[in-house]
Design a protein around this nucleic acid. Structure first.
Length: 304
RNA sequence: GGUCCGAUGGAUGAGUGGUUUAGUCACCGGUCUGCAAAACCGUCUACAGCGGUUCGAAUCCGCUUCGGACCU
C-alpha cells in the first residue's frame, strides 16, 4: 500500500511531453521534475526546448536550468538528487510528475543504478586519450586482462563502454562485472509510466517544424553564446554541435539547420528503441488528454 | 526528321563478360548501469524494357521507352 505516486511521462523528442505534463500537473495540482539530461542546464533553453517562463508559471518545475553547463552531472548523481527532491515533494503532494526523454535517467530514477564510486575525471581523461591514440581494440585487450567476464559481454567496438569498464576496474581495483548487480531498487512510491508518441511521419514533421521555430526563436544566437564552452559534455547535443560546425566554417547555415532536423529525427528513433523495451509504459497520443487522465486516475485508485 | 550521349538500389556513385562484389549518405532495425540529445552495431543485392550473342551479361549487339546535347 502506497499513497505516493510518480507519474512518468516518456516519449521521443517533439512528441508533446511538456504540454501534456503541464496539463496533468494542473489536474493533480502537483509539481513536475525533469528527466531530461539537457534541460538541467542553464544557458540552452531554446535548443533543449525547456519549458518557458510562462509554462513554468502553470506548474512547479524541478531540475530545469538549475545548474551550469560546466557542472559535472550524470545519471547516478541525478538519481540521488532526484530521490531526495522527491522525498520532499511527497511530503506535500501525493502525485509528482516526471517528464523527459532521457531513457537512462528515467531508468536511474525508477530502478536505480548500482552504487559505484565516482571515478577521478583525470583517469577517465587519460583512458580516453589512450583509447584515441591506441585504438579501442587495445583498450579492449586491457579489459580482457582486468575483467574477462565483462570483456565477453561488452560492446568491444564502443569506446564509451570499454573506457567506462576500465575506469571502474582501475579506480576500484576490482573487476567492473563484480560490481554490477543490475538489480532494481525498491522505491518508496508507486510508478505509473505513460508514453506519448504518434505516427513516425507525423512526429518527423513536428520535429522539423519545431527546429524551424527554434531557429526563429534565436537558436543560432544561443549557440553562439555557448560556443566558447563547446567542448563541454553538456554541449555535445543536437542543436548545438551543428552550429559549432557552422561557426567553424565546416558547413553552411542551411546545412546546419538541416542536420539539426535529421539528428533530431534520429534521436527520436533511438528514444523509441529504448522506450519500446519498457513494457511498463502505456502509450498514448498526446492529444488524448482525457484518456490519459482517466488511465492515471484508474492506476492511482488501483494502487491505493 | 537526323546525329550523338546517357539510363545502375531512396540519393549519390564506381564497376566493360565469370566465386562474395563497390563505396558513401539517407532510410530502416537494434544495443544500452555514470558523457546517454552521448557512444556503438546491423540490414537494405540494384543495374530502364524486350530480344539476341555467349557455357556465362549490369558489362557486347539490336529494337523500344525515357532524358540530355547538337544538326537540319
Amino acid at each position: 500500500m502506497n499513497t505516493k505516486h510518480l507519474v512518468v511521462i516518456a516519449g521521443p523528442t517533439g512528441s508533446g511531453k511538456t504540454d501534456l505534463s503541464i496539463r496533468v500537473a494542473q489536474y493533480y495540482h502537483c509539481p513536475i521534475i525533469s528527466t531530461d539530461s539537457r534541460q538541467f542546464y542553464r544557458g540552452i533553453p531554446i535548443g533543449t526546448a525547456q519549458p518557458t517562463e510562462e509554462e513554468q508559471q502553470k506548474a512547479e518545475h524541478h531540475f530545469i536550468a538549475d545548474r551550469e553547463l560546466k557542472d559535472n552531472f550524470n545519471c547516478g548523481a541525478y538519481e540521488a538528487e532526484a530521490l531526495r527532491r522527491l522525498e520532499d515533494l511527497f511530503l506535500k503532494h501525493d502525485v509528482v510528475i516526471a517528464v523527459g526523454g532521457s531513457g537512462l535517467y528515467i531508468k536511474a530514477l525508477c530502478e536505480g543504478m548500482d552504487d559505484l564510486p565516482e571515478v577521478d575525471p583525470s583517469l577517465r581523461e587519460e583512458l580516453k586519450q589512450r583509447c584515441y591514440a591506441e585504438g579501442v581494440d587495445a583498450m579492449a585487450e586491457e579489459l580482457k586482462r582486468l575483467d574477462p567476464d565483462f570483456y565477453e559481454i561488452v560492446d568491444r567496438k564502443n569506446p564509451a563502454r570499454v573506457v567506462r569498464a576500465l575506469e571502474v576496474c582501475i579506480s576500484t581495483g576490482k573487476p567492473y562485472s563484480t560490481l554490477r548487480s543490475g538489480e532494481k531498487h525498491q522505491r518508496a512510491f508507486n510508478i505509473i509510466k505513460i508514453g506519448v508518441t504518434m505516427e513516425r511521419e507525423v512526429l518527423y514533421e513536428r520535429i522539423d517544424r519545431r527546429v524551424d521555430l527554434m531557429v526563429q526563436a534565436g537558436l543560432e544566437e544561443e549557440a553562439r553564446k555557448v560556443y566558447p564552452l563547446r567542448e563541454l559534455n553538456a554541449l555535445q547535443t543536437v542543436g548545438y554541435r551543428e552550429w559549432f560546425d557552422h561557426f567553424d566554417g565546416k558547413i553552411s547555415r542551411e546545412e546546419a539547420i538541416e542536420l539539426i532536423k535529421r539528428n533530431s529525427r534520429r534521436y527520436a528513433k533511438r528514444q523509441m528503441t529504448w522506450f519500446n523495451r519498457d513494457s511498463e509504459i502505456k502509450w498514448f497520443n498526446p492529444a488524448e488528454t482525457e484518456k490519459i487522465l482517466e488511465y492515471i486516475d484508474s492506476k492511482i485508485c488501483s494502487l491505493k
